[in-house]
Simulated assay, not measured.
Amino acid sequence: MLRPTPFSCSKRKLAVHLSAFTLALVAVPALAFGQAPPKTGTDMELDPDSKPPPPAEPPPLPPAQEGDWGVGGADEEGKFAPSGKTGAKKREEDEKAEEAKVEDYRALPPREVGVDLVIGFGEIRDVLSDTDPTDVTVASFVPYFFWRLNETWAIGARVPFATGSIDGPIENPVDSFALGNIEASVHARFKLKRRMTLPVSLAITVPTAQGDMFPEQDAAGARPQALLNQAVAGARGWEEQAPYTPNRLGASPSVGFAYDTRLLHVAASTKFELLIKTGGGTPESEATGTLHAPAYNWVTGASFFYDFLDGMISPGLRAWLAVSQQPVTKGTSDYSGAQFVIEPDVNSTIPVGKSLAVRAGLGFIVPLGGPIGGSNSATITGFRLRAGLAF
Rank of each mutant, 00 (worst) to 15 (best):
I313A: 12
E77M: 05
F33V: 13
K39I: 02
I204H: 03
L31M: 13
L61I: 01
P207I: 04
T163Y: 04
F7E: 15
T40V: 03
F146I: 01
A302H: 07
A268I: 05
E123D: 12
I166F: 08
G316C: 02
E123G: 00
S140Y: 04
P253F: 12
H187M: 11
S83A: 08
K85N: 09
F33I: 10
K271W: 10
G331L: 06
S10R: 15
F7M: 05
P246H: 09
L385E: 05
P55D: 14
L108F: 03
A32S: 01
K101W: 05
S314T: 12
V299I: 12
A293R: 14
A188P: 00
I119D: 02
R158W: 01
V232G: 01
S348N: 05
M1I: 05
F214D: 04
T134F: 02
A203L: 06
P37Q: 15
E93D: 11
T332V: 07
P60A: 14
L23I: 11
E66Q: 13
G164E: 09
R148Q: 15
M1Q: 09
V142P: 00
P59M: 11
K330C: 02
V299W: 05
W69N: 09
G256K: 06
P169R: 10
F257P: 00
E45Y: 02
W238Q: 09
A235Y: 02
G289E: 05
D345I: 06
A139C: 06
F146G: 00
A56I: 12
F304E: 03
N247C: 01
E273G: 04
A88D: 02
V323P: 00
A267D: 14
D49Q: 10
M44Y: 11
E57D: 12
R189T: 07
T152P: 00
K39S: 10
Y335T: 04
L385Y: 11
T332D: 14
V16M: 08
K96V: 08
A258E: 15
S269H: 10
A378R: 04
A226F: 04
S333V: 01
G78A: 07
M312P: 00
Q241N: 14
K85Y: 07
F272R: 13
T288L: 05
V206I: 14
G280D: 02
I380R: 01
D175N: 15
D218C: 01
P367E: 08
P58R: 12
E76H: 08
R125K: 11
L179Q: 11
E99S: 08
E92P: 00
G370E: 08
T261C: 04
A178H: 02
G256C: 08
I170G: 03
D212H: 09
I170K: 13
L389Q: 02
L321F: 04
R248T: 15
P224R: 01
G369I: 01
A81F: 05
V200H: 07
V346K: 03
A20G: 07
N297M: 06
Q326L: 13
D175H: 12
M312W: 08
D126H: 02
F214L: 02
K90R: 13
F7S: 13
P173Y: 03
S140D: 14
V206N: 08
R125N: 10
A219Y: 11
A267N: 14
N229Q: 13
P52S: 11
A378T: 02
W153Q: 11
D175G: 15
Q210Y: 01
I313N: 04
L149E: 10
F7N: 09
D260F: 13
